[in-house]
Design a protein around this nucleic acid. Structure first.
Lengths: 235, 235
DNA sequence: CTCTTGGCAAGAGCAGTGCTCTCTATGTTG
DNA sequence: CAACATAGAGAGCACTGCTCTTGCCAAGAG
């Protein structure tokens, strides 16, 4: 990448970045619903129609923010999962905690990517890569435990269709892991996001709220569920 | 209830009902975002300002729809859980299937109640009753299995804080069930909705999609997880 | 060093939104 | 019947996403 493009191109790149920054600010402040192109333009001292030189529609701007959110979360979870090389339970805990911490710190961005899809908005192909980074990072813990020979593989019988889907999923994540373990990993993945979504959207109010203890306990039970061994401290 | 109120009152009740019906129709067609007071009014042959005689704001209309959705789902799950008196696993399966079927049949209503909350919208107290019917119906299966003495109670150690929360939750649902079983029930609840939400919002595309086999398998594993006995057919 | 091209911002405008206010017609009640 | 409460209509406000036209100005071509 040569940074010495023409003045026009540099200005364009700069402004594109600034628009996204301001949009993210508004998103964080008031959610996807509250993201207004006119308000973004106003804040940047330009007129709304000028924004359309940079983003063809509000949905495309949102798509950019969605991709960024997926990537930020993916980054965090990947980094969390990379530490503690052979303590697989600690890695699992760290990944789950990374997801929750990001979600709590950025509830509107969480809602944007994992909440209800925006009206008539169809996620383009470009989001699936960034979106799969997090589940892949979670399943990587299972894979590494399996490779290390310490994964307690469940003997669940799978229907042929489900077995095929598990094999396909394993292929995506380059998992050399028995299908039943893959399925349990996916279940734990849905559990994790179900729990975090419920916490964030208030469905746990009155029962498991605040959810810290519940979360920690559940993460460990899910580690058992997918067959991860206890950590070196025996827990 | 005397049905012979004044003509005005009957007309008012009638119109209130029609407004909600039309609103629900638009909600189903195009989601909460696409619900427009003006469009509802137009469809009913009245002017938008007239709607404000019946609902003080769009949010209040949405609240009504939310409560209705919770109640419809609660109804279905309660009825599903009432059948098959002593086959607790079958009851569990029926409850879970009821949730999923309703969700798939009414994705926009599902998104309205379990997806991202609408911007700045704060769920009023009146929603919590209807909202808790579904989790209570799910936990009732656990309770009945426990009362019948067939619940395999887990020996999970709970942190004091979590134990207290579990006891409080049990109180809400009038559950005479050991705290660890309550916690596992709540976990299964979050798993169920996490899985259904992921299926509905497309996060399972490319892995466990179509999700029928995955769903059935997961529901059974979760039944194991909460300690329900196998059904009379041994599975 | 001109001249043409093309990217760019601005402004006006369209069709729509939630919501408020005023005014008039009509049903209800003392 | 008269007094009152209520329902609907209409105009209007401040906003939205988006389109189209106009004019400016930098960049490359001859």
């Amino acid at each position: 990448m040569n940074a010495s493009r023409t003045a026009r191109e540099r200005a364009r790149a700069e402004l594109t970045r600034e628009i996204k920054e301001e949009a993210r600010r508004q998103l964080r402040a008031s959610g996807a619903q509250g993201l207004s192109l006119r308000a973004v333009a106003r804040e940047l001292g330009m007129v709304s129609s000028a924004l359309y030189r940079y983003f063809p529609s509000r949905d495309r701007l949102l798509t950019e923010l969605i991709i960024d959110a997926y990537n930020v979360l993916g980054d965090r979870v990947e980094r969390a999962g990379a530490a503690d090389g052979d303590d697989f339970r600690a890695r699992w805990r760290a990944c789950c905690a990374a997801v929750r911490e990001w979600a709590i710190a950025n509830p509107h961005e969480y809602a944007l990517v994992y909440g209800s899809p925006v009206p008539g908005y169809e996620a383009p192909e470009t989001t699936v890569g960034p979106a799969s980074r997090t589940p892949i990072a979670l399943l990587a813990v299972v894979r590494d435990a399996s490779r290390a020979g310490v994964l307690r593989v469940p003997d669940d019988g799978l229907a042929p269709e489900l077995d095929a889907q598990a094999a396909r999923t394993a292929g995506l994540a380059e998992l050399d892991v028995p299908e039943p373990a893959v399925v349990r990993g996916v279940i734990a993945w849905t559990q994790l996001f179900g729990m975090i979504g419920f916490e964030l959207f208030g469905h746990l109010d009155g029962s498991m709220d605040p959810a810290d203890a519940f979360f920690a306990h559940t993460v460990d039970l899910m580690a058992d569920f997918i067959g991860l061994p206890a950590g070196p401290d025996g827990r």
